[in-house]
Simulated assay, not measured.
Amino acid sequence: MKISEVIKKKGNRVVTIESGTTVADMLRMLDENRIGALVVSDDGGETVQGIASERDIVRALHQRGVEVLGKTVRSIMTSEVWTCTSDDELEALAVSMTEHRVRHLPVVDKGKLVAIVSIGDVVKHRLDELEAERNELFHYVQGDRSMT
């Protein structure tokens, strides 16, 4: 299964933030959008310059204190961003996210940001697949061959 299937179900909405935005404004955006990370892009989402997450904020607060809230997203963002394409296989992506300890992956096709997927999206999709398999097996065992 390709990551494009996950994107079809969850949608391709990506919230981006400019690198010069304050961390305090970033917190507001995370809260308003009920998300855990923002793609950093100074050109409105065409290119990915970094990713800024709740984890980045917590780390910066711990290291530098509350004055970090007035600093820019550029000062706390992760610049080395792992990305994927919509043609990548879901299982390989799950392994990659686990190995690299990343929770969010921007989806980039032909050099352009097209979506973002989280580890939660990947897990939800896999759970949905397992539920469908369970239902199919249940109906098979019960003798309802119309499901197969």
Rank of each mutant, 00 (worst) to 15 (best):
V122I: 15
L137C: 03
V122F: 02
V102P: 05
L61S: 06
S86T: 08
M26G: 00
Q142F: 14
V58G: 04
D31Y: 10
L30M: 11
V107E: 00
V68E: 00
H62M: 14
I76D: 05
T83N: 01
R134I: 11
E80F: 03
E133W: 13
R103C: 12
S79A: 04
G20E: 01
L137K: 04
V114H: 02
V122E: 01
V6H: 13
L69F: 12
M29C: 07
I119P: 05
L130C: 00
T72R: 15
L27M: 08
W82D: 01
V58C: 03
H125R: 12
V73Q: 01
E99R: 15
E133S: 15
L38I: 05
F138R: 10
H100V: 11
T85R: 03
S41C: 02
Q63D: 06
S19P: 05
D31V: 14
R34W: 02
V48I: 02
R126C: 07
F138D: 06
R55M: 03
V39Y: 00
V14G: 07
V123C: 12
T85H: 02
A52Y: 07
S79K: 11
L130P: 05
D42Q: 04
T148R: 13
K71T: 03
I57T: 03
E89H: 10
I57Y: 09
T47L: 11
F138Q: 09
A92M: 15
S86I: 07
A37Q: 05
D87M: 12
R134Y: 09
K9D: 04
E133Y: 14
W82L: 10
G120D: 11
K124C: 07
L137I: 05
A94E: 05
K10D: 12
V117N: 04
T83A: 03
Q49I: 04
H104L: 14
V122Y: 01
A24I: 10
V122A: 07
S4A: 04
V73P: 02
E136F: 11
V108P: 08
K10G: 12
R13C: 01
A92P: 04
E46I: 15
I17N: 02
T16Y: 02
S96I: 13
E129K: 10
R64G: 05
A37V: 14
R59S: 09
R55K: 15
F138S: 08
E80L: 09
T98K: 12
K9S: 06
V108A: 07
Q49L: 09
E131F: 13
K8D: 14
V68I: 15
S96E: 15
K112M: 08
I51Q: 00
G44K: 09
H125T: 10
V107N: 00
H62W: 15
R28N: 07
G120F: 05
V39M: 02
R74M: 02
D56P: 10
H139M: 12
K124I: 08
D31W: 07
Q63N: 06
L113M: 03
N135T: 09
L127N: 06
I119R: 09
Q142A: 14
V117K: 03
